[in-house]
Amino acid sequence: MGLKTFLGIKKYQWKKSVKKFITKVKKGFPQYPWDDFLRITEYFRGRELSSLPERAFLFRLSHDLPSDAKVVEIGSWIGASSCLLASGLKGIRAKMYAIDNFKGNASDCSARIRYRERMSKLKTDTTKVIFDKNITYFNLENRIVAIVNDSLQAAKSFCEPLHSIDLVFIDGDHSEEATKNDIALWLPFVKSGGVVVFHDFTSNHGVPQAVWWAIKQSYFSELMGIYGSTIAFKVS
């Protein structure tokens, strides 16, 4: 079997599994625009680390927000989750802030090595150009605002007032200290009753410890769901 044939079979199998997943999820959640989800999922095939249930959960959380909602994403990479979040939003004034240094900088040494390897495969030292290309492909330039900075500096100069953000998705530096800092920095921007989402909650990084710390601080009022390594809470 040639390489092209093998890749063709893999692509066919993947598309088949995605369509099967969407057929199933439509029965449970018929109110969502799953055609938009399918387009984005197919486009980012093989370039996104999260599972289909995780992506669908993120998409549903975004779509459930009020019209003209505002979303902040910490850690955007090439824009896969950015596109899912932004496409789920409703209203012409809805806004999505994608915060990333786009260079794979991380406090953890092993994480830095992994990012360097991924950068090497992409043949670039920044993913911003790829991010912009992906955002443009889905005509989301007017909805997504990229902030090229780390989380700390972005929070210091953020343009939106406190208690104005409907959802924050934390998927940046995965060390315990950095994740705690992200929580402390960005939680004040979230509305009461808003949503905070974490990726890699089940990883061997510092995310689980940081989330348990936040729970002990009574920062959250309700667990909204867990899908794979993605966990979401309603803010007190």
Rank of each mutant, 00 (worst) to 15 (best):
D125L: 07
K121L: 09
I99D: 00
T126I: 02
D108P: 10
K123G: 01
D100M: 03
S107R: 15
D100L: 03
I99Y: 01
L122C: 01
M96R: 13
D100A: 04
Y115D: 15
K121M: 06
K103C: 11
K103Y: 02
T124A: 12
K123Q: 05
M119Y: 05
S107E: 13
D108L: 09
I113P: 07
R118L: 13
R116M: 11
I99R: 05
Y97T: 02
Y97D: 04
R116W: 11
Y115Q: 13
S107M: 11
S120M: 15
E117W: 04
S120E: 15
K121S: 15
K103D: 03
R116I: 14
G104P: 01
S110T: 12
R116H: 06
I113Y: 13
K121F: 09
M96P: 08
D125N: 15
S110E: 12
D108R: 14
A111S: 05
L122K: 03
K123F: 00
R118E: 09
S107N: 15
K123E: 00
K103Q: 13
K123S: 04
A111Q: 06
A106W: 02
T124Q: 05
R112Q: 14
N101K: 05
D100I: 01
I99T: 03
M96N: 07
R118Q: 12
T124P: 01
D108N: 14
I99S: 02
T124E: 08
M96S: 06
L122A: 03
M119K: 08
D125M: 10
G104Y: 04
F102Q: 04
M119C: 08
C109S: 12
R116L: 12
T127G: 06
Y97R: 06
A98S: 10
Y97H: 11
G104A: 06
T126A: 11
S110D: 09
F102M: 04
S110Q: 10
Y97I: 04
S107Q: 15
E117M: 08
L122Q: 01
G104W: 00
T127Y: 10
L122H: 01
F102P: 00
M119E: 09
M96Y: 12
S110H: 10
R116T: 10
A106M: 13
R118H: 12
A106S: 12
S120H: 09
A98F: 02
I99K: 09
Y115V: 07
S107H: 12
L122V: 00
D108G: 15
D100G: 02
L122M: 07
F102C: 03
I113H: 04
T124L: 01
K103F: 01
E117I: 04
T126H: 09
T124V: 04
T126F: 07
L122P: 00
S110K: 13
Y97E: 02
D100P: 00
R112V: 15
D125I: 06
C109P: 05
M119S: 05
R118M: 06
I113N: 11
D108Q: 14
K123R: 12
R118N: 09
R114V: 14
A106F: 10
